[in-house]
Nucleic acid binder design. Structure first.
Lengths: 198, 198
DNA sequence: CATAAAACAGACAGGTCTGTATATTTGTCA
DNA sequence: TGACAAATATACAGACCTGTCTGTTTTATG
């Protein structure tokens, strides 16, 4: 059972994602969700709070989707890591979230609009990224890969690069580029296991 | 001799970069640049045109800076490629452009606010990224590296990933992560030279 | 069914935004 | 100095923005 609050946050997330935060007025969110203005301000103190709620929903939904994609691919941790990249490609192609095309990463976009590191939306974006890195570290550890923290940071950086490239340049194939790079980097890390010369 | 138009575009670029495009009103650009409103609309038809002019200035200035940083590092093409990453780090630390802190990539930010691929600002962002890739391809070729186009795309992807990571998570050290990755990828490409098995 | 909470419609205040109009001042160059 | 172009200040129109207020209707629950 979806509450009016859920309708609101859902609609807000979609509009913010497609058109940006500052460019999306609450009147549009209200008319598209069919919710009255007073109801909005009963649930949220301000538009900023609605933005935060939308980003929290996005964080939860995106990470759940990504982890599910990775985990359904295999039971092997290393294969699960590599499964991140085909998952990204389906996202880039607009096939990941129903009724929602690809407009880049909502959190990179949020950090762009709210450039100040102290802004709550920017902090939320940083948290989102950190949570994903944490998950990758876990998988690297399970896979028995050397320097799991360092390798997870590398894979996360590939993910960010693929997202930015796919969106700005309209190049969904960036996922495949990142995939190839990940393979090389993981093999290189393995080759240096116990042989960390240089 | 700087014209009023230059003052306008310069101030606009700074404000757009720090606060975002939609969040920056013309009145603020006018008051900070000390230019009258009618002068703006004599030089530009609309705010959108001013945004495009600011992004064009940014494109020119950023690429000139990056290429100069890379070229002053060495005469060897491969070393020049690798010099991109220390250059990125000085940027992330706010030491690249005087009086201008680091607020991510202006073009990633623009693509975020103007999500539609057909929007002129988004297209300009894509062009900016393509021009940088072109330069990297050229360097890869000069360095005699195999598959220069593919390798340049990889290095560009590392650059995007480092930028996004440095900005969203406030991690300037992402430049060093990307640098290490680049070294591995270049060595791997060389090792497969004439031996493109698998 | 009765009652209370929730959501509704719609107007409105106060501010900000882009863009225009008008009239005055500044600067340049002959 | 005189003439012309450029930039200025200021006011304003019209739209949009967030957030508030009032009163009505719907919905859920006992």
């Amino acid at each position: 059972m979806k509450s009016r609050r859920d309708d609101l946050v859902e609609t807000a997330l979609n509009l913010f994602y497609v058109h940006g935060f500052n460019a999306t007025g609450i009147d549009r969110i209200l008319s598209e969700s069919g919710v009255a203005k007073m109801t909005l301000y009963k649930h949220f103190r301000s538009k900023d709070e609605l933005i935060l709620a939308a980003l929290q929903l996005r964080d939860e939904r995106f990470r759940n989707w990504l982890m599910a994609e990775m985990e359904k691919s295999s039971t092997d941790p290393e294969e699960r890591l590599m499964a991140m990249f085909p998952a990204l490609e389906t996202w880039f192609l607009g096939k990941a979230f129903k009724g929602m095309g690809f407009y880049g990463c909502a959190f990179i976009n949020a950090a762009g609009e709210f450039g100040d590191q102290a802004h709550p939306a920017h902090r939320l974006a940083a948290e989102h990224k950190r949570r994903i890195v944490d998950y990758l570290v876990e998988l690297c550890r399970d896979a028995g890969l050397p320097d799991p923290e360092g390798l997870a940071e590398q894979l996360a950086l590939l993910k960010e690069g693929a997202i930015a490239t796919a969106h700005v340049r309209n190049m969904p194939e960036a996922a495949r580029t990142a995939e190839k790079m990940a393979r090389v980097l993981i093999e290189s890390a393995k080759a240096r296991r116990g042989n960390p010369a240089e």
